[in-house]
Design a binder for these strands. Structure first.
Lengths: 213, 213
DNA sequence: ATTATGACTGACTTCCCAGTCATTTGTCAA
DNA sequence: TTGACAAATGACTGGGAAGTCAGTCATAAT
């Protein structure tokens, strides 16, 4: 989980870094459950096991803490995407299955699932954050989907160029899953695996698929 | 816009009702742009042109005002849905087109478009509100979509029963449009009409449609 | 072993805002 | 016209939370 420690690290520096991380972890949880405005720094520090003033050693103010929390939680997503991109010569349906699988395992089943909701919720009051997310997550993600769709279309695996023009249509049910899980799960469970499988079925109907060796 | 006035209405009562509505309208705007916690009642009253205390003549507290704002904005949706349900013998694709059209005109192009975002944002802190939205909007909406899909499937207009099992898949691109419009529009415009048309094309490919007389 | 350092603390200050209520304004019935 | 009453007002209050800073003490330097 933790990156390899840089060459020399005094006891002080290590403890310092641990505190910083504790604050970020606690803040993620509090921001996610309360939203930005309603989250109290007193709650964050008590969850993190540090004192009020410690926050201000690492973060300019509450807003800076919030932005760093989001950025920190979003960063590791790229690793997953890179893995997906490498398999770009697999059948489209298989790639989609892998993508949906990764999504369920690495995002939906973790606290990260709340990040997009947080972005949507606070995007208005943090335009920079929305811009960051659009630039660093949405755009590269859609570009990747578009390339995969393009290749699949050229190979004849996709009947239409719909997904090339609107790759977001491949992503939509994941958005539904995120929103539903974050908001309506207490009232009605959603069978995400079945939803995503059904969506794959819609995008590339069995009769249109190349036979898998 | 206003409902026919109930039989007798004194000057006092009319003015009172007008104030109440002014507060709701102003509150919608402020809540939508600031979120619940960050919205200041002082801003709402000054936008509504009333005094601070007036709010408390109509609403128990800030939270009650918030809930009534959301309920008030959500209610009129049913009228549109009823209209759609009446045309249930039209071809599925045509009904979907009508639905998408209504959505764009009556929701996406109005301040109402921000309501779902508000629900997603504040649902955690207002479980009752999320429950209300799930019960009064999501469930009836998905039930309607399921019935339409069921009928279309029986008629052979839909190749698979995917939409019967997961009617939310028909709805997903509208969710995408809502989220995108509320969050990322300043950075990249989304051609909603084209997106929705493309999605219809995916759901019922031209070759699968019954010829329209 | 002794001193110097600066990371960390948490009580405190300051500001903000939801909610109150004594006062004023406007309506309506007599 | 007028008095009674309700409706509306907005200055004020109390509590709560962001941000500060003088003091403490574990660690590092000598």
């Amino acid at each position: 989980m933790v990156v390899a420690p840089p060459h020399r690290r005094s006891k002080r520096e290590a403890a310092s870094e641990a505190r910083r991380q504790a604050i970020l972890d606690a803040a993620l949880e509090i921001f996610v459950s309360q939203g930005f405005a309603a989250a109290r720094l007193d709650d964050i520090v008590s969850a993190a096991g540090v004192a009020k003033g410690t926050i201000y050693l690492f973060f300019r103010d509450k807003q800076d803490l919030f932005e760093q929390v989001v950025r920190g939680a979003v960063g590791p997503v790229f690793a997953d995407m890179a893995v997906l991109a490498e398999k770009a010569d697999a059948p489209f349906d298989a790639m989609l299955a892998a993508l949906f699988d990764t999504f369920q395992r690495e995002i939906l089943a973790t606290p990260k699932r709340e990040i997009p909701r947080l972005i949507f919720a606070e995007g208005r009051r943090f335009p920079e954050l929305a811009a960051f997310y659009h630039r660093e997550v949405i755009t590269p993600g859609l570009d990747l989907l578009r390339r995969l769709a393009q290749r699949a279309h050229e190979r004849g695996e996709l009947v239409s160029d719909a997904l090339v023009r609107h790759p977001v249509l491949a992503f939509a049910p994941m958005l539904v899953s995120l929103i539903w899980t974050s908001t309506f799960d207490p009232f009605q469970k959603l069978d995400v695996a079945d939803l995503l499988a059904t969506h794959r079925e819609l995008l590339s109907p069995p009769q249109a698929r190349k036979p898998t060796p």
